[in-house]
């Protein structure tokens, strides 16, 4: 019984990682209608950056905000130079550009760091285990769950209760009217894109400890990220959270109870959800 609960905790921690990495994808897709297959690459950039700065002596907890800011700036730079020209292009052109970006970044990682797995040094208080209600849980898992929950609350607050969030929702619902009342939609989109990239970078930095890191990272987890968005519904933060937690726990449960089924259940679930609710659980009509 207690091992089952441990599996569940594992699943929720994995789900939180998925949520952090996927929520930016969901937002850029739902709000800007941009299909960003390079989103996993942003997570990879964050992960490599974290490995490098921690190895250089920066404490893990300081590395996280640094990664957040740098990857966010990187996202804004790419949005300003290239992606903003692609919002009105076809899905195919968006796919081609973003997959090209993912390939190029993966190849650069391979050239700079080599094909081997990277490890990150986490502080001692994160590597131990804690006894919680008679359960023995890795403290890193608890840390992940706390980080994910805090991010979810902050994002929901940002989008539902601040002027920034109201402007974004206005720009999405009616861009012309939003521009007419003086909202600078272009700048808003760039900031939102940067925020999504920053969160992906944070998710990537946090996942090195649990999932490992190599140049194939960007494409390996892309499918999972897209599934979170598809099941949760593009543009919905609550939907992404629900989908990520659901996918994480179901994945962990089946790997524990029925290892033969493997990834099968997850992909089957995706196809089933898309058949019943093509816009996802909480999707806005695209």
């Amino acid at each position: 019984m207690s091992s089952l609960v441990a599996v569940l905790v594992d699943g929720v921690a994995y789900g939180m990682l998925l949520f952090l990495s996927a929520v930016g994808l969901s937002v850029t897709l739902g709000l800007m209608r941009f299909i960003n297959l390079a989103h996993g690459a942003f997570a990879m950039v964050g992960a490599y950056l974290a490995v490098v700065v921690v190895a250089a002596g920066l404490p893990f907890l300081l590395a996280l905000p640094l990664v957040f800011v740098v990857v966010g700036a990187f996202g804004i730079a790419i949005e300003r130079t290239a992606i903003r020209h692609l919002y009105r292009r076809s899905a195919l052109e968006q796919v081609l550009f973003s997959i090209g970006l993912a390939f190029a970044l993966g190849a650069l990682a391979n050239l700079i760091f080599g094909p081997q797995q990277q490890a990150i040094q986490t502080p001692a208080w994160l590597t131990g285990r804690v006894a919680l209600a008679g359960l023995d849980i890795t403290s890193y898992r608890l840390f992940l769950i706390a980080m994910g929950a805090a991010t979810a609350i902050a994002l929901i607050y940002l989008f539902e209760h601040t002027l920034f969030g109201a402007r974004i929702r206005a720009a999405v619902d009616n861009r012309r009217a939003a521009e007419g009342i003086g909202i600078q939609v272009e700048r808003l989109f760039a900031l939102t894109f940067g925020l999504g990239a920053a969160l992906a970078g944070l998710g990537g930095a946090l996942s090195v400890e649990m999932l490992g890191l190599d140049p194939a990272f960007a494409l390996k987890y892309l499918t999972m990220l897209l599934m979170v968005v598809a099941i949760g519904g593009a543009g919905s933060i609550e939907g992404s959270l629900l989908a990520a937690l659901g996918l994480g726990t179901i994945d962990a449960l089946f790997k524990y109870l029925l290892p033969e089924a493997g990834g099968f259940v997850i992909f089957g679930l995706l196809v089933a959800v898309l058949l019943v609710k093509p816009a996802g659980l909480k999707g806005r009509a695209a």
Partner: peptide, 17 residues
């Protein structure tokens, strides 16, 4: 193979424009 993948990515991005 690494430069091939890098070149491919760059060509793809450029091809859109």
């Amino acid at each position: 193979p690494r430069y091939w993948q890098l070149g491919l990515g760059v060509v793809l991005m450029a091809s859109v424009f």
